[in-house]
Amino acid sequence: MKNVKRLSAFVLAAVFICMAFTSCSGGAKKYTIGICQLMKHDALDAATQGFIDAVNQELGEENVDIDTQIAGEAPVCTTIVNTFVSRKVDLIMANATDALQSAMQATKDIPIVATSITSYGVAMDVEDFSGKTGINVTGTSDLAPLDQQAAMIKEICPDTKTVGIIYCSSEANSLYQVQEITKELKELGITASPYSFSDAADLRPVVEKAISDNDVLYVPTDNTAANSTGIIDGVARPKKVPVFSGEEGICKGCGIVTLTIKYYDIGFQAGKMAAEILRDGKNPGDMEIAFAPQFTKEYNKEICEELGITVPSDYVAIGD
């Protein structure tokens, strides 16, 4: 009986190892790539898939050995990249900010290609970011085309004079977008005012206030807002106020139109950059951070019909 603990520890270790071996694979010398993705999330999954597809297409599926690890939470990224570095992979793909931050701490030598990063300057804590990192890091950004989104508001609702911007005060990326689009709207002669909320609980009164003050609403790419679109829709739709959004998910929940990036595209672009580094020996520090190659104009059919808004023919209904 005294050995129960010891025995079960042994059995557990054995189970662990057996389970691990089932997913283990060997092979000849290839390009080895370690992918560290922060968490399971539709957008991040799409970016990883795009990366893998691009790498396979550029280098040939038989020539690459890709290990995809999903951390689930920030501290696990550290363990994953540490494993990649000690295994001396040829390249690390870091998907999302925390993964990039871990990877760039872990190695100064192995090339790192990142994706799903909004601002590399902010993520890497570099002042006066020039577009190139100068170190072993490059990648693609998921920043939405804010100038074109501003123009979109003018296109769909030409009479707009004031825009209320709803965003979560705790999201650094949102604040950045608010500042940028405010500048863009000002150039079009539209006044934008920020309305911040701290969480879903105080979102309703904030939206009500924004609606009573403004002609239309704009919601940037904001995770907290994306999770609470039902509240925004519940307030805005009965009052017939159009909501413009920075990305597809928010548009699907409460918006009328959006100009969105495809995470698959930026992942694919990152995969091409990885191939250039591995095959052509390019230096990541000299490669410009790339942005989404194309944007998709999308509209929410149900809300547009209810508000009596007809969108130009180049817009695609979400879900089609």
Binding site: I17, A20, S23, C24, D67, Q69, I70, T79
Partner: peptide, 9 residues
């Protein structure tokens, strides 16, 4: 060890 063996994280 488990990550090195390739188990799904």
């Amino acid at each position: 060890l488990v990550i090195n063996l390739g188990m799904n994280t």
